[in-house]
């Protein structure tokens, strides 16, 4: 643990002033924005966010931007390639001494799960294999949120979305993007959630100290997409961790370490029952089989963790 990372022990150690500007068009209670503003506080304004199409594309709508640093919107599929271009250009400018070190920026990719798990996956894979020195932040709200929450490669099993409205919800299973990224052996991979700001801040601080590809998936509770009152955003994020649905972990130096093992682990039902997208599991009749299956899946994950 680095010194700076070790300094983040309590909420008190988090920054008290926030860098990300107010006045964004993100929904009230947006879990993605919560994670982004926590990340930005640690990452700092000497950064350029290279964005892929998604909810957060609307963060910068002419002439308004919440960023104190820089921003570049690309397209849905190729934000990591945009980061490549910016990073390479900055390196060239530094090498050729056309700019000073003080002008350098941390290059960060910002995408939703639609881009990260799907259309942008090959661009991400390419950037990792080229050992691009960048930070990748995926705000994962488990669906194509900006278009009204259709299912994506990140949608969990059984969740109701605009394109999986049947009695069993989404038939597929959430893709394990963490494992896909880890398989590339990048410098750093971590899962975070805005509801656990200390864990998040430590991880971003750690990522900041490393070079190479550093990839972060932030679970982004989404009031309209997941069907809950905005005020519950933090509680739902916290429940995702405490029920074991969203394991907080990191990959560094070739090892995966869980940074917060829920103990005792709360029943998955506590997480599911608070969200409209899982309401069909509870009414008009409890779907015991499906609930048991979802619990078993989480149990199996944690069984393998403790082995």
């Amino acid at each position: 643990m680095s010194a700076r990372e070790a300094m983040i022990k309590r909420m008190k150690d988090l920054p008290s002033t926030h860098l990300l500007g107010t006045g964004t068009p993100m929904c009230a209670g947006c879990g993605g924005l919560e994670a982004l503003h926590e990340v930005y506080d640690v990452l700092g304004e000497n950064s350029v966010f290279v964005n892929a199409a998604g909810c957060m594309t609307l963060l910068s709508v002419y002439p308004f931007t919440p960023f104190r640093g820089s921003w570049l919107y690309t397209a849905m599929a190729s934000a990591p390639a945009g980061a490549q271009g910016v990073r390479d250009a900055l390196d060239i400018l530094l090498e050729k001494k056309r700019v000073t070190k003080a002008e350098d920026l941390e290059v960060a990719v910002l995408t939703g799960d639609g881009a990260a798990y799907g259309m942008g996956l090959s661009a991400t894979s390419g950037a990792i294999e080229r050992n691009l020195d960048f930070l990748y932040l995926c705000y994962d709200n488990e669906g194509y949120g900006n278009t009204g929450q259709q299912y994506s490669g990140a949608t969990p099993h059984a969740a109701k979305t605009a394109t999986s409205g049947g009695p069993r919800g989404f038939a597929g299973y959430k893709k394990d993007l963490f494992a896909i990224w880890v398989a590339h052996k990048p410098a750093y991979v971590a899962t975070v959630v805005g509801a656990e700001p200390l864990d998040l801040a430590r991880k971003i601080e750690k990522a900041k100290q490393l070079t190479g590809p550093r990839l972060i998936i932030a679970l982004a509770p989404c009031p309209p997409g997941w069907g809950y009152d905005p005020k519950d955003s933090v509680d739902i994020g916290r429940l995702a961790v405490r029920t074991g649905v969203w394991p907080l972990k990191e990959y560094v130096d070739g090892k995966v370490v869980h940074t917060k093992i829920p103990h005792p682990r709360r029943p998955v039902e506590e997480y599911l029952s608070k969200q409209g997208r899982f309401a069909h599991l509870f009414a008009p009749k409890r779907n015991e089989a499906l609930l048991a299956q979802l619990q078993a899946k989480v149990d199996a994950y944690w069984a393998q963790v403790s082995e």
Binding site: Q84, A89, I92
Partner: peptide
């Protein structure tokens, strides 16, 4: 697709 993204991004960074 990525190549042109990188080209544009690098040009937008000033090289």
């Amino acid at each position: 697709h990525s190549m042109i993204t990188a080209a544009g991004a690098a040009a937008a960074t000033g090289v």
